[in-house]
Structure formats: C-alpha cells, structure tokens
Write a protein that binds this DNA or RNA. Structure first.
Length: 280
DNA sequence: ACAAATACCTGTAAGC
DNA sequence: TGCTTACAGGTATTTG
C-alpha cells in the first residue's frame, strides 16, 4: 500500500524522468479515475510543460508551467508506470499521460480507489516546503517527513484515541499509514494502543525522532512491497524495506529487539502489530 | 464537537 | 477440486 515512503520514491523517479517535458496527450479511460470534476477538463493540460513534482503526505502534485496542479493519489493499489508508446497495456490501466520525448506515464489501479484531479490553487494556507496551497488538500496536517516534536505534541495532546489512530489521521499528520504507524511505534518503544494524550514530553520527542528515522530508512529502501506486490516503483520494481519491518505483518515471529513473539492486537476494525516487551 | 462505522473496490488466501 | 467468504486498507461520507 503506498504510504509516504512509496509515494516519495515514485515522486523522485517521476520528477527525474518527466520534469521539463511537455505533455502532448492525456487520456483517462477509468470510469472512477477522475471523480471530482468532468474528466474532459484534463485535456486542458496538453501542451503544458511539467515543471516539477511535489508531494504532501500521500498526495502527488504534478506542477505545470501555467501554475495548474494535477493531483494524483494512489490510494490502495494505484501505480504510476513508465512505458513506451507501443508497450502492451497492463490490465486496469485507467489513464495515460504522453510526454514529448520520454514516452508515457501510465496510471494502473486494480481496486480503483486511486484518483486524479485538477486542484484549485490559491486558497488556504499551503504546507511549508514550497508547495502550492490547494483547497482540496487543506485538511492535511504537516507532512510526516518534516514534522517536529512541537507539532506532534499539539496533535496528540488531550486526545483519548489510541496513538496509532492519531498517527494515521491525515489531518493530524500526513503520510503515515498502517505499515509505518506500526513501525514508528515500535521504533519509539511505544504501544500503538496507548491513549495519544498520555505520552510524556520525552516520549513525544522520541516519537518525533522515530517518525523521521523510520521514514528516511524506508525511502532509502525504496518503500515496502507486500506479498501482493501492489506497490511497485515507476519501473515496476518492488521496494525492499519490507525486509526491514520489525513488527508489521510479523505475528508470532520473533521481535528483533528481544526475541519475544510479535503480537497482533485488534484496534477497532483494524489491527496493529506490537512487541509487548519492547513497547510500553 | 468529536468518534466510530461504513462505502468504495478487486485480488488473494483461507475455509469448507 | 471448486466454491464461498474474509480480508487487505486510505479517505470521504454518514451515523452515532
């Protein structure tokens, strides 16, 4: 499932390959792929040069020379794949962007949760890192890669919800999902089912450091691909950070820290993986 | 006001 | 073996 490290890996590769090139055609065939406005509006991007690719949380921002922004969210099973014009089209290919000189960028998404839309610029306050302010992303908290302890403290304070629930809440912090929330909690030595507001300032500081550490390591590993290989990079290759998961998806296996079996704990409809000895 | 449940999907795996 | 069912999960929306 693409979370921040996977989206960031795709962002870097897409930017390297397509930035500076001009869109010569865009075709969206998926019925659900563009659902916030008429899909035909995307045609107005043709002729525009892609000036850069940004990211806020799990959202990719394709920035064009006229200031317009095409937002892409991969959700559960979306992939962006580089392809040449003649390459056979993978099943569930819902969109194709054709660039001058560098071939196609294809959007493939079996579960069809992913989406593309043209954002509305200029409204609300933007995220820090030089990204455009977009009305549709105004609800997002700060990007998890640049969050600091002070913000985390404020986001967690007085909240009775479990720590993990707050960590995956994109309004509090943008970018963490199921995998990295569990891994971050383990790295910080904190149980995901602790009440968020019960963390001491020292624990919040540890948590902030762990968010950064885990995400940077995961990006270095080009993200996590699970058994279903739903996450693949721009060139169709899986990530390798799943090999470094300490607790996620490892129930009954030895905790790398102490050797005790990792437990699966139910948290509402979802579950979390935790080491009862290493996490308090 | 916030919190929990649900809808949206398909592929895979487990269960019978 | 072949069928049915459960599960995976991010976000918007609905319900509590």
């Amino acid at each position: 499932m693409p979370e921040l490290p996977e989206v960031e890996t795709v962002r870097r590769d897409v930017s390297l390959r397509y930035a500076g090139h001009t869109l010569v055609d865009i075709a969206v065939t998926g019925r659900r792929t563009v659902r916030r406005h008429p899909p035909t509006e995307l045609a107005r991007l043709t002729g525009q040069r892609l000036v850069g690719v940004g990211r806020h949380g799990k959202y990719l921002l394709f920035e064009w020379e006229d200031g317009r922004v095409l937002v892409v969210h991969l959700r559960m099973s979306g992939q962006l794949l580089a392809a040449a014009a003649g390459d056979p089209r993978a099943l569930h290919t819902h969109g194709v962007l054709v660039f001058d000189g560098v071939g196609e960028l294809r959007f493939v998404d079996p579960r069809t949760f992913g989406e593309l839309f043209l954002a509305t610029p200029g409204s609300g306050t933007g995220p820090d890192a030089g990204l455009p302010a977009l009305a549709e992303l105004g609800h997002l908290g700060p990007d998890a890669l640049v969050v600091d302890a002070a913000h985390l403290q404020a986001a967690l304070a007085r909240r009775r919800a479990p720590l993990k629930v707050v960590l995956v809440d994109q309004r509090a912090l943008a970018g963490l999902g199921n995998i990295y929330a569990d891994e971050v909690c383990f790295e910080a030595g904190l149980r995901p089912d602790r009440a968020a507001g019960s963390l001491t300032p020292e624990e919040v500081g540890r948590l902030a450091g762990s968010v950064r550490t885990v995400l940077e390591a995961a990006i270095a590993g080009r993200g996590s691909s699970l058994r279903d290989l739903q996450y693949r990079d721009l060139y169709g290759k899986p990530g390798r950070y799943q090999l470094d998961h300490k607790v996620y998806g490892r129930p009954g296996l030895a905790c790398p820290g102490c050797g005790q079996p990792v437990q699966r704990v139910r948290m509402g409809a979802r579950s979390a993986f935790v080491c009862a000895r290493c996490q308090r």
